[in-house]
């Protein structure tokens, strides 16, 4: 018996470093839990394209497993073999889905690998809106209940509105509207007062010729593309950052070496200038945080949202 245990231990000891050297020895599936053409899919394909020029002898295949608003693909990865050959294109919805949508996994079923995009929340108004600045908007919102477009009740955008309500003495009237196109129609056409949007999508509608104006961005520093738009804190909303994120995650139990290899791969992708260019052109500012940095982002988002979910009674 002892000999068996010893051999097993030895085998593990011997194969572990070997494994690290040989990984990846075959193709890796990057599971996108959404349909082809969505933001998760587009960013994943841009990453895979660059990563495949860096990898030797193996390549990353983007696999779409759509359904259930992402839950189907996310569940699939949570149950996959933790060997580094199945990666999840992870979005912030993984954090809230177990509580809000009854997803059959927990956030802790995943190991964050690397973060590649942070999308801060913005307050946007119609170009024709009487409110030129965030201060004007917030002041007016104290007297009048503003009609604020969000992607749906209990989405991250609705929760960002509830977060604003928590730190100010404002209440909004939420107008749940599915699909970004329909939301743009409502705002650019002046059918609602404001919208809570991710910057990545809002940016394409703001600026020259666009139908919307961005009043404030929920990030710690001003955005390079919008140097004149203040942060939430600057206009008196005490929320340093409210951002949805995109990154890579693997099933829990994946060996440290594999996580390190993948995280380093993402770093090399990030260091490729063409990658940054492509991400910018598609409207997604590229960032990089390693496994630890990404874990921190995931945990802070979980902390931010769990308070809101509990207070507003949003959980299922």
């Amino acid at each position: 018996m002892k000999i068996v245990t010893l051999t097993a231990t030895l085998a593990v000891l011997l194969t572990t470093p070997l494994f690290a050297q040989t990984y990846p020895e075959r193709d890796i599936d990057l599971v996108v839990p959404f349909d082809a053409g969505g933001s998760g899919d587009v960013t994943s394909r841009i990453i895979a394209e660059t990563a495949n020029t860096l990898l030797d002898g193996a390549k990353i295949n983007v696999v779409n497993r759509a359904g259930g608003g992402g839950v189907v693909g996310q569940t699939f990865v949570s149950k996959a073999k933790p060997d580094g050959y199945t990666i999840l294109a992870m979005t912030s919805s993984v954090v809230t889905n177990p509580q809000m949508k009854g997803a059959p996994y927990e956030v802790s079923d995943f190991r964050p690998v690397a973060l590649y995009n942070l999308d801060p929340e913005v307050i946007a108004v119609p170009q024709s809106s009487p409110y030129q600045t965030a201060e004007e908007f917030l002041a007016a919102a104290k007297d009048k209940k503003m009609n604020v477009v969000v992607a749906g009740i209990a989405t991250s955008h609705h929760m960002s509105g509830l977060a604003i309500e928590r730190v100010t003495d404002i209440t909004f009237n939420y107008i749940p509207t599915k699909g970004f196109g329909a939301q743009v129609q409502a705002i650019a056409g002046g059918h609602a007062d404001a919208a809570l949007w991710p910057l990545g999508e809002a940016a394409g509608q703001a600026g020259n010729g666009g139908g919307v104006r961005i009043l404030a961005i929920a990030s710690e520093e001003r955005n390079e593309a919008f140097p004149d738009v203040p942060t939430f804190e600057e206009v008196g909303i005490d929320i340093p950052i409210w951002a949805t994120f995109r990154g890579w995650a693997v099933p829990k139990g994946t060996p440290d070496e594999v996580v390190k290899t993948l995280s380093d791969l993402m770093k090399s992708v990030y260091d490729t200038p063409e990658y940054i260019e492509k991400m910018d052109a598609a409207g997604y500012g590229a960032v990089y945080r390693d496994a630890e940095g990404f874990s921190f982002v995931v945990d802070s988002y979980a902390a931010q949202t769990s308070v809101i979910i509990e207070e507003a009674g949003l959980g299922q």
């Binding site: 349909d35 082809a36 053409g37 969505g38 933001s39 899919d41 587009v42 394909r45 196109g181 743009v184 394409g204 509608q205 600026g207 020259n208 010729g209 666009g210 139908g211 492509k278 052109a281 598609a282 409207g283």
Partner: peptide, 17 residues
């Protein structure tokens, strides 16, 4: 709507810009 995805894959965002 699927054209949006195809455009986005090539770094283009449909809209006023």
């Amino acid at each position: 709507a699927l054209f949006i995805g195809a455009l986005a894959l090539h770094g283009m965002v449909p809209g006023p810009l």
